[in-house]
Amino acid sequence: MQDKIFRFVLILSAVVIPIIGGGIIYSLTNDAASAFKQFGFWEFIFSDDWNYTPGNESYGALPFITGTLLTTLLALIFCIPFSLPVALFVGEYFRGRKVATILSTVTDLLAGIPSIIYGLWGFYTLRPIFMELNLSPQGSGILTASFVLAIMIVPYAASLSAEFIKMVPADLKEGAYAMGATRAEVIRRVVFPTAGSGVFSAYILAIGRALGETMTVTMLIGNTNQIPTSLTTTGNTMASIIANQFGEADGLKLSALIAIGLILFLITAIINLIGKILIRRAQHV
């Protein structure tokens, strides 16, 4: 009897999760409906108009979708030259040694820093440097935001990649060494091909994080509502436009922002799902 109650409680608490998940999709869709109805689904996605003068309201998500994709892509490009060496350092070269523990602690702490503090650091320290280097006139913009975003996702990409690099069986590597391969060749020919799908999934998950990152980007991207034309121009991402304008929005604009939220949610959900499926596959090899 008590066992039945216990099992019931277990299942009851597990049911909370699908309720939240389903609820998110339902509520976002429900509240985004009036924007989609007004402008049409595809028109909303492919319009670059963001005009909230009353009577002349017109909203489109394209500038923010491009802003998000652009910052994420740039962040990924900036992140790889650092996260890959860290993963090799921790997972292969100094595996299990004290220096590796220290470096993992460093990346763990990097992952722990709240995004608003990254934003402050980017704004007060990096932005003047970018201006000094003549990289961009105001210092803020796509490039600055992507750069800080890259630092933020290094820990995620690196620690998970390192896990998969550690899992490469020693006898495979020994086999290659025994034939006279150098360590660099073992890494290229044995470690990466074996750990490849896992490392790939780590980057997919890192992309998932970068897509939804809000505060840092909001503080650094410059917040303008047009499609970015170059890396140094300002812009907005889906997350940053919501952060900036949700507070004072109502009516159609609120619905448009929620519609952007829905698009962001679906994109990150798909990316994360792909990442998790790849990880589960990689772990079961």
Binding site: L28, G208, R209, T214, L257, G261, L264, T268, A269, I271
Partner: peptide, 10 residues
């Protein structure tokens, strides 16, 4: 993996 801003909206 849901962005925190979405949690805010919801």
């Amino acid at each position: 993996g849901t962005p925190s801003i979405i949690i805010g909206i919801i």
